[in-house]
Simulated assay, not measured.
Amino acid sequence: MTTSRIGFGAMHLAAAPAEARASAIAVARRAVEIGVTLVDTAHLYGWGANEELLAEALHPYPDNLLITTKVGVVRTPDGGEICGRPDVLRHQVDEALRRLRLEQVELLQLHRVDPDVPLADQVGTLRELREEGKIGRIGLSEVTTAQLADARTIVDIASVQNRYNVLDREHEAVLDACTAASITFLPWRPVHPLLTAPSIVGTAAELGATPAQVCLAWLLHRSPVIVPIPGTTSIRHLEENVAAAALTLTDEQFERL
Protein backbone atom coordinates (compact mmCIF):
# COMPACT_ATOMS: atom_id res chain seq x y z
CA MET A 1 0.00 0.00 0.00
CA THR A 2 1.36 3.41 -0.99
CA THR A 3 0.71 6.65 0.91
CA SER A 4 1.91 10.23 0.73
CA ARG A 5 5.27 10.72 2.43
CA ILE A 6 3.69 13.15 4.92
CA GLY A 7 0.38 12.28 6.55
CA PHE A 8 -1.97 14.26 8.76
CA GLY A 9 -2.70 13.80 12.45
CA ALA A 10 -6.31 14.75 13.15
CA MET A 11 -6.08 14.81 16.95
CA HIS A 12 -6.35 18.60 17.27
CA LEU A 13 -9.42 18.97 15.04
CA ALA A 14 -12.32 20.13 17.20
CA ALA A 15 -15.76 18.58 16.77
CA ALA A 16 -17.51 21.45 18.60
CA PRO A 17 -18.69 24.20 18.76
CA ALA A 18 -20.15 24.64 15.28
CA GLU A 19 -17.64 27.28 14.10
CA ALA A 20 -14.66 25.19 15.22
CA ARG A 21 -16.19 22.11 13.60
CA ALA A 22 -16.62 23.87 10.28
CA SER A 23 -12.99 25.02 10.40
CA ALA A 24 -11.82 21.48 11.25
CA ILE A 25 -13.76 20.03 8.32
CA ALA A 26 -12.16 22.59 6.01
CA VAL A 27 -8.66 21.61 7.22
CA ALA A 28 -9.33 17.88 6.73
CA ARG A 29 -10.67 18.46 3.23
CA ARG A 30 -7.75 20.70 2.31
CA ALA A 31 -5.30 18.00 3.45
CA VAL A 32 -6.78 15.56 0.95
CA GLU A 33 -6.93 18.24 -1.77
CA ILE A 34 -3.17 18.85 -1.55
CA GLY A 35 -2.26 15.18 -1.70
CA VAL A 36 -2.31 13.77 1.81
CA THR A 37 -3.38 10.14 1.62
CA LEU A 38 -2.92 9.04 5.26
CA VAL A 39 -5.04 10.55 8.04
CA ASP A 40 -4.55 9.40 11.63
CA THR A 41 -7.26 9.44 14.29
CA ALA A 42 -8.20 7.43 17.40
CA HIS A 43 -11.10 6.45 19.61
CA LEU A 44 -9.43 8.51 22.34
CA TYR A 45 -9.72 11.74 20.34
CA GLY A 46 -13.04 13.02 21.60
CA TRP A 47 -14.14 9.47 22.43
CA GLY A 48 -15.15 8.87 18.84
CA ALA A 49 -16.06 12.45 17.93
CA ASN A 50 -12.90 12.86 15.87
CA GLU A 51 -13.71 9.76 13.83
CA GLU A 52 -17.22 11.07 13.17
CA LEU A 53 -15.81 14.45 12.16
CA LEU A 54 -13.51 12.87 9.58
CA ALA A 55 -16.37 10.84 8.16
CA GLU A 56 -18.45 13.99 7.79
CA ALA A 57 -15.57 15.80 6.12
CA LEU A 58 -14.22 13.10 3.82
CA HIS A 59 -16.79 10.34 3.21
CA PRO A 60 -17.15 8.92 0.61
CA TYR A 61 -13.41 8.49 0.79
CA PRO A 62 -11.14 8.67 -2.27
CA ASP A 63 -9.80 5.26 -3.25
CA ASN A 64 -6.23 6.18 -2.27
CA LEU A 65 -7.09 7.63 1.16
CA LEU A 66 -6.08 5.63 4.23
CA ILE A 67 -7.91 6.52 7.44
CA THR A 68 -6.11 4.86 10.33
CA THR A 69 -7.51 4.76 13.86
CA LYS A 70 -6.47 3.42 17.24
CA VAL A 71 -8.21 1.46 20.01
CA GLY A 72 -7.30 0.36 23.52
CA VAL A 73 -8.11 3.35 25.75
CA VAL A 74 -11.40 3.61 27.67
CA ARG A 75 -13.15 6.62 29.16
CA THR A 76 -13.19 6.95 32.94
CA PRO A 77 -14.54 9.59 35.35
CA ASP A 78 -10.98 10.93 35.66
CA GLY A 79 -10.28 10.97 31.93
CA GLY A 80 -9.10 7.72 30.38
CA GLU A 81 -7.07 4.60 30.98
CA ILE A 82 -5.40 1.91 28.91
CA CYS A 83 -7.54 -1.18 28.43
CA GLY A 84 -6.59 -3.98 26.08
CA ARG A 85 -9.20 -6.55 27.06
CA PRO A 86 -10.39 -8.48 23.99
CA ASP A 87 -14.04 -7.50 24.49
CA VAL A 88 -13.10 -3.82 24.70
CA LEU A 89 -10.93 -3.97 21.58
CA ARG A 90 -13.67 -5.74 19.63
CA HIS A 91 -16.30 -3.22 20.70
CA GLN A 92 -14.10 -0.24 19.85
CA VAL A 93 -13.28 -1.63 16.41
CA ASP A 94 -16.99 -2.09 15.70
CA GLU A 95 -17.65 1.47 16.86
CA ALA A 96 -14.82 2.79 14.69
CA LEU A 97 -16.29 1.06 11.64
CA ARG A 98 -19.68 2.62 12.37
CA ARG A 99 -18.35 6.13 13.01
CA LEU A 100 -15.98 6.14 10.05
CA ARG A 101 -18.63 4.53 7.78
CA LEU A 102 -16.25 1.78 6.76
CA GLU A 103 -16.60 -1.95 6.22
CA GLN A 104 -12.91 -2.41 7.03
CA VAL A 105 -10.29 -0.31 8.82
CA GLU A 106 -7.30 -0.58 6.50
CA LEU A 107 -4.85 0.12 9.35
CA LEU A 108 -5.94 -0.42 12.96
CA GLN A 109 -3.44 0.43 15.68
CA LEU A 110 -3.27 -0.64 19.32
CA HIS A 111 -3.04 2.73 21.05
CA ARG A 112 -1.06 1.41 24.01
CA VAL A 113 -0.06 -2.03 25.25
CA ASP A 114 -2.06 -2.85 28.39
CA PRO A 115 0.39 -4.18 30.99
CA ASP A 116 -2.43 -6.05 32.75
CA VAL A 117 -3.47 -8.10 29.70
CA PRO A 118 -1.17 -10.62 27.98
CA LEU A 119 0.18 -9.15 24.75
CA ALA A 120 -0.86 -12.33 22.96
CA ASP A 121 -4.49 -11.66 23.94
CA GLN A 122 -4.39 -8.06 22.72
CA VAL A 123 -2.59 -8.64 19.42
CA GLY A 124 -4.34 -11.98 18.99
CA THR A 125 -7.72 -10.26 19.15
CA LEU A 126 -6.66 -7.86 16.41
CA ARG A 127 -5.46 -10.82 14.35
CA GLU A 128 -8.88 -12.45 14.74
CA LEU A 129 -10.57 -9.22 13.64
CA ARG A 130 -8.30 -9.14 10.61
CA GLU A 131 -9.30 -12.70 9.77
CA GLU A 132 -12.95 -11.62 10.08
CA GLY A 133 -12.32 -8.86 7.54
CA LYS A 134 -12.84 -5.93 9.91
CA ILE A 135 -9.15 -4.95 9.84
CA GLY A 136 -6.80 -4.85 6.88
CA ARG A 137 -3.48 -4.25 8.64
CA ILE A 138 -2.36 -4.07 12.28
CA GLY A 139 -0.16 -1.43 13.90
CA LEU A 140 1.19 -0.67 17.36
CA SER A 141 1.76 2.57 19.23
CA GLU A 142 4.30 3.52 21.91
CA VAL A 143 6.01 0.14 22.01
CA THR A 144 9.50 -1.02 22.90
CA THR A 145 11.68 -3.11 20.64
CA ALA A 146 10.90 -6.15 22.80
CA GLN A 147 7.13 -5.61 22.52
CA LEU A 148 7.44 -5.15 18.76
CA ALA A 149 9.43 -8.37 18.45
CA ASP A 150 6.94 -10.29 20.61
CA ALA A 151 3.98 -8.94 18.63
CA ARG A 152 5.59 -9.98 15.35
CA THR A 153 5.64 -13.60 16.52
CA ILE A 154 1.84 -13.40 16.74
CA VAL A 155 0.89 -11.41 13.63
CA ASP A 156 2.40 -9.26 10.90
CA ILE A 157 2.86 -5.68 12.10
CA ALA A 158 2.44 -3.03 9.41
CA SER A 159 3.23 0.11 11.40
CA VAL A 160 4.53 1.55 14.65
CA GLN A 161 3.47 4.95 15.98
CA ASN A 162 5.90 6.24 18.61
CA ARG A 163 6.86 9.78 19.63
CA TYR A 164 9.96 10.82 17.70
CA ASN A 165 11.47 14.00 16.31
CA VAL A 166 14.84 15.66 15.76
CA LEU A 167 14.99 16.81 19.41
CA ASP A 168 13.39 13.73 21.01
CA ARG A 169 14.94 10.42 19.99
CA GLU A 170 13.97 8.18 22.88
CA HIS A 171 12.66 5.56 20.46
CA GLU A 172 15.66 5.49 18.14
CA ALA A 173 16.08 1.73 18.59
CA VAL A 174 12.44 1.12 17.69
CA LEU A 175 12.82 3.18 14.53
CA ASP A 176 15.94 1.20 13.61
CA ALA A 177 14.04 -2.06 14.12
CA CYS A 178 11.22 -0.81 11.90
CA THR A 179 13.66 0.31 9.22
CA ALA A 180 15.34 -3.10 9.22
CA ALA A 181 11.98 -4.87 8.91
CA SER A 182 10.38 -2.39 6.44
CA ILE A 183 7.66 -1.53 8.98
CA THR A 184 6.17 1.93 8.49
CA PHE A 185 7.08 4.29 11.33
CA LEU A 186 4.51 7.04 12.02
CA PRO A 187 6.17 9.48 14.43
CA TRP A 188 3.69 11.43 16.48
CA ARG A 189 4.74 14.90 17.58
CA PRO A 190 7.12 14.94 14.61
CA VAL A 191 7.78 18.64 15.16
CA HIS A 192 9.10 19.47 18.63
CA PRO A 193 7.51 22.64 20.08
CA LEU A 194 10.97 24.16 20.79
CA LEU A 195 12.44 25.08 17.41
CA THR A 196 15.05 27.67 18.43
CA ALA A 197 18.11 25.38 18.27
CA PRO A 198 20.78 27.14 16.16
CA SER A 199 21.21 24.12 13.89
CA ILE A 200 17.49 24.11 13.04
CA VAL A 201 17.21 27.86 12.57
CA GLY A 202 20.42 28.01 10.52
CA THR A 203 19.38 25.16 8.24
CA ALA A 204 15.97 26.76 7.72
CA ALA A 205 17.65 29.99 6.63
CA GLU A 206 19.87 28.10 4.18
CA LEU A 207 16.90 26.36 2.61
CA GLY A 208 14.47 29.28 2.70
CA ALA A 209 12.16 27.11 4.78
CA THR A 210 10.53 27.22 8.20
CA PRO A 211 12.08 25.45 11.20
CA ALA A 212 9.11 23.07 11.26
CA GLN A 213 9.69 22.16 7.62
CA VAL A 214 13.35 21.44 8.39
CA CYS A 215 12.31 19.08 11.20
CA LEU A 216 9.97 17.19 8.87
CA ALA A 217 12.59 17.03 6.13
CA TRP A 218 15.08 15.63 8.66
CA LEU A 219 12.64 12.82 9.49
CA LEU A 220 12.17 11.96 5.83
CA HIS A 221 15.94 11.86 5.39
CA ARG A 222 16.37 9.81 8.57
CA SER A 223 14.64 6.66 7.29
CA PRO A 224 12.67 5.61 4.21
CA VAL A 225 9.98 4.00 6.40
CA ILE A 226 9.07 7.25 8.19
CA VAL A 227 5.70 8.87 7.45
CA PRO A 228 5.33 11.89 9.77
CA ILE A 229 1.79 12.79 10.83
CA PRO A 230 1.94 16.45 11.89
CA GLY A 231 -1.34 17.86 13.14
CA THR A 232 -2.65 21.39 12.93
CA THR A 233 -5.87 23.38 12.95
CA SER A 234 -4.47 25.89 10.44
CA ILE A 235 -4.67 25.48 6.67
CA ARG A 236 -1.53 27.61 6.30
CA HIS A 237 0.46 25.36 8.63
CA LEU A 238 -1.00 22.29 6.93
CA GLU A 239 0.21 23.48 3.54
CA GLU A 240 3.65 24.30 4.97
CA ASN A 241 3.90 20.84 6.51
CA VAL A 242 2.99 19.03 3.31
CA ALA A 243 5.40 21.21 1.31
CA ALA A 244 8.25 19.92 3.51
CA ALA A 245 8.20 16.71 1.47
CA ALA A 246 9.82 18.67 -1.37
CA LEU A 247 12.78 19.79 0.76
CA THR A 248 16.05 17.94 0.38
CA LEU A 249 18.71 18.17 3.07
CA THR A 250 22.35 17.75 2.17
CA ASP A 251 24.22 15.09 4.10
CA GLU A 252 26.06 17.88 5.93
CA GLN A 253 22.80 19.51 6.99
CA PHE A 254 21.40 16.18 8.13
CA GLU A 255 24.48 15.41 10.23
CA ARG A 256 24.48 18.91 11.68
CA LEU A 257 20.92 18.42 12.88
Rank of each mutant, 00 (worst) to 15 (best):
R5K: 15
R5Y: 01
I6S: 01
H12E: 14
P17N: 09
A18C: 08
E19M: 02
R21L: 06
A26K: 13
V27P: 08
A28F: 13
R29M: 08
A31P: 11
V32W: 01
I34T: 15
G35S: 10
T37R: 10
G46Q: 09
A49E: 12
A49K: 00
E52K: 08
E52T: 13
A57C: 14
L58Q: 04
H59F: 14
P60T: 07
P62M: 00
N64K: 11
N64Q: 15
L65Q: 02
T68I: 11
E81Y: 01
I82A: 10
G84A: 10
G84P: 13
R90G: 04
H91A: 15
L97V: 13
R98K: 15
L100M: 13
L100C: 06
L102S: 04
Q104R: 15
V105K: 04
E106I: 09
E106F: 01
R112C: 02
R112W: 15
V113W: 06
V113I: 05
D114Q: 12
P118Y: 09
A120P: 08
Q122C: 10
V123K: 05
V123W: 06
T125N: 04
E128T: 03
E128P: 04
L129H: 10
I135P: 00
S141E: 13
V143H: 02
R152H: 12
V160K: 09
Q161H: 03
N162K: 12
R163T: 10
Y164A: 03
A173E: 12
L175M: 00
D176F: 12
D176K: 09
C178Q: 10
T179C: 09
A181N: 06
A181H: 12
S182D: 15
L186A: 02
W188I: 08
W188C: 00
R189Y: 10
P190R: 11
V191Q: 00
T196S: 04
S199L: 08
S199A: 13
V201P: 04
G202I: 05
A205G: 09
E206K: 12
T210E: 11
V214P: 12
H221N: 14
R222Q: 09
P224N: 10
V225H: 05
V227Q: 07
V227S: 08
I229H: 03
P230R: 07
G231V: 03
S234P: 07
I235H: 13
L238Y: 11
V242A: 02
A243L: 08
L247G: 00
T250H: 07
L257Q: 02
